[in-house]
Design a protein around this nucleic acid. Structure first.
Lengths: 262, 262
DNA sequence: ATGTCTTTGTGAACGCGTGCACAAAGATAG
DNA sequence: CTATCTTTGTGCACGCGTTCACAAAGACAT
């Protein structure tokens, strides 16, 4: 789900490809599971299967980190867990602030996957005065007015935005001004940030829309083509059927199906 | 943020590149905003800025859908909204079932971004008998035992999994058996599904880990390099400092920092 | 020590996605 | 009708990411 990084065209950080960085957490999860089962070593083949990727890709990914495997044997699980954790920066504690404590913000505050990976929810911030002091996931919600101080006092460098779209940019600006340099944005808004600030966007409805696209295609293919396992039905099943304005003039406003409520 | 599609290597559906499909919802959102402000037409430049992408990329994306613009003028907003909606399959109603009504499941059930884009939460399903009947977001939670019937009765083809990781694969199997062909997976598990079923994964903690990686790099670069705007600090600031096992033998189990709780 | 067998690490080819830069198309003015 | 100006649509080149396929490296047996 979610869309890739927003700014930062493809910085190829320290020689490690962005695509590889994005997969490291995947490997880490699989390795942690093996570690818990006290498995001492894994082959690239096994680990790749557990992580759901190609084994060649996994080996190449690891090769960017260094030569951590033993030929004929595989990778030492514990050692690899440590190396990847270090590479991802998970050997240190990251205080995180969540701004916008609605349903989603509360869910994230309660999400166990954060705490278990070096992330600590240091502060919950909301603009609603009525929420101030209310404990969510064991942490008292604080008011937006104190955002600056909260960020500074806790040394927060990673912020999570779960506000309504209208407030997102303003919150973002204030976070950045207070010293936050990495933002995870759940609001459906394109945030603009100064250079040096990383933004990653998670858009829940976009994921569903992508699924809907494929779903529709599957349904259409099924109806049109018979026989043969679907390769690439070339004949345009649903090519532009009708054109609102033959040669495009302004405001064709009556014959357009009201498709999108919002 | 979130990770891209899981299976389906890159099917290039109906000639529209995956990368383009993933951006269509972005354009759609920007266009909808323009539509609400009654803006009749936009240039690729303006729309690209609003969507946060390159204008050439946007034009190329639209070219896959057909020639919907007018040279010298731009794109008709309403018409484009309709075309993209149709292409994404949003002109029809998609009943969606959410399985696992914890914090996240409840947040999704309440999320407005779904209903406004053709997705209708048709059913909420949970394994806890105590939850059965409880209304969440105005919909009564139903028990997992009835999963099959619920999916069939409502014609659900898109399922959302927000269960704990241990239950995810089993729920997935049951959804697929009941006829679901698209799955949005929030559980941190690699799901295996038969061909023809699409899985998209959203992993909240992975996004944070990627941010942490860049955050760490920024901090390291700052400390090491001075002067010059950071291009690519080549000298390995934190290359393999110590190796647990010099030539890798089995189970080095004492000198490894306990980094990962779980 | 030598040979066999397993598994890594990587060179090389390929394909997709991106962005430049420009020609074609149409609007608009005179 | 002609000229000019704007903006699309796309040919092309480049770079990143993926995958294949294999040589090198080490484990293990004899």
């Amino acid at each position: 789900m979610a869309t890739g990084r927003t700014h930062r065209p493809a910085t190829r950080s320290r020689g490690i490809p962005e695509a590889t960085v994005a997969r490291l957490p995947l490997y880490l999860r699989a390795l942690t599971a093996l570690s818990e089962r006290s498995v001492p070593t894994v082959s690239s083949e096994e680990l790749a299967a557990a992580a759901g990727v190609n084994s060649a890709k996994l080996r190449k990914d690891f090769s960017y980190l260094g030569s951590y495997g033993t030929r004929g044997v595989g990778y030492d699980v514990e050692y690899l867990v440590y190396q990847i954790s270090r590479e991802l920066g998970l050997t240190q504690d990251w205080p995180v602030a969540i701004v916008g404590i609605g349903n989603l913000g509360a869910a994230l505050a309660n999400y166990g996957g954060f705490a278990s990976r070096g992330f600590r929810v240091a502060a919950l911030i909301d603009a609603d005065p009525a929420m101030a002091g209310t404990p969510v996931a064991g942490i008292a919600v604080q008011h937006t007015d104190d955002l600056d101080r909260i960020i500074s006092d806790n040394g927060v460098s990673i912020g999570v935005i779960t506000t309504p779209p209208g407030a997102a940019q303003q919150v973002c600006d204030r976070l950045v001004a207070a010293g936050v340099t990495s933002i995870l944005n759940f609001a459906p808004t394109v945030l603009s940030v100064p250079d040096g600030v990383d933004v990653r966007k998670v858009d829940l409805s976009i994921e569903l829309q992508i699924l809907a696209f494929h779903e529709q295609r599957k349904a259409g293919e099924e109806a049109a083509a018979d026989g043969r396992a679907g390769v690439d039905g070339d004949a345009d099943t649903d090519a532009p059927p009708m054109r609102a304005t033959p040669a495009g003039r302004k405001g064709p406003d009556g014959d357009m199906p009201a498709v999108m409520p919002a």
